[in-house]
Write a protein that binds this DNA or RNA. Sequence first.
DNA 1: TTTATTTTACAGCCTTGGCTACAATTTACA
DNA 2: TGTAAATTGTAGCCAAGGCTGTAAAATAAA
Lengths: 146, 146
Amino acid sequence: MKNTPETLPNQQAQAARFQQARDARSAATAQDYVELISDLIATEGEARSVDVAKRLGVSHATVVKTINRLQKEGLINTKPYRGIFLTPTGEDLAAESRHRHQVVAKLLMALGVDEENAQVDAEGMEHHISAVTLAAFEAFLAREKQ
Amino acid sequence: MKNTPETLPNQQAQAARFQQARDARSAATAQDYVELISDLIATEGEARSVDVAKRLGVSHATVVKTINRLQKEGLINTKPYRGIFLTPTGEDLAAESRHRHQVVAKLLMALGVDEENAQVDAEGMEHHISAVTLAAFEAFLAREKQ
DNA sequence: TTTATTTTACAGCCTTGGCTACAATTTACA
DNA sequence: TGTAAATTGTAGCCAAGGCTGTAAAATAAA
């Protein structure tokens, strides 16, 4: 295949889109954790790694390892054998993630998707919603409400 | 935290949702590859690993490794130093993926998202769209067209 | 206050999906 | 035809995110 003048920019644009999707995938873990930890603190008063493991459906060892990484990244604070807490940065990310999650789930339901399917799909989709798309979703929901 | 009668099912439901999201993430690679290979064959007459690498924005070595895995999984056929082909299973998956991708992109644009952002977000979102949600998207688009 | 249970931590392993560097093969062209 | 360029393949490395198994600490119960 030769690189005609048009194919090259298309290639690069497509590569950039795939790159963004990969970035979103790797950011998804951090978002899931902080969102869940924030929820647990709000509803249960504390977040323990055993609860995080149960909610995520993974082993507690996986949780501990990930928590350690997120702590290095400045999203989480822990003390040995004590609960898990969010840093201000982690709180911000959690709030943003929860908001995106809720908007996506509401949009799906507004389009006629049942609650359970909306929750499942929102869990995966929320990490791939750009600011532009989020705004479009919110605008649609605002229109529908009238 | 004690497991009150209500928290347990909730926990399990949430764990199942996260599990589905993880499954979708790992299936995403296969879908991206077959969709892209199918596109390349359609537009260029053949799919070569160097082209796949350029379009995905990864190294050719990564492509070769993944192609080998997908071949073992029965989605792709290759002969040493020859092009990449899809098995019937791979063709089916590619068609399905392309369709989902297009529906998602169209929906985003119907909601006012610009083409480029729609393409980026669709690339990530398409792997997390259940059959129910896909049908809802299509129904919405059909309604809009009138 | 011991003892048992729960929770947390750590060690080591696997797979996926990235990478670079180098080797082999095919294709293009001088 | 023979050599250079392009393409494909291989080897070996890394990080993330899974896992099991075992040890340590904290909590609950006898």
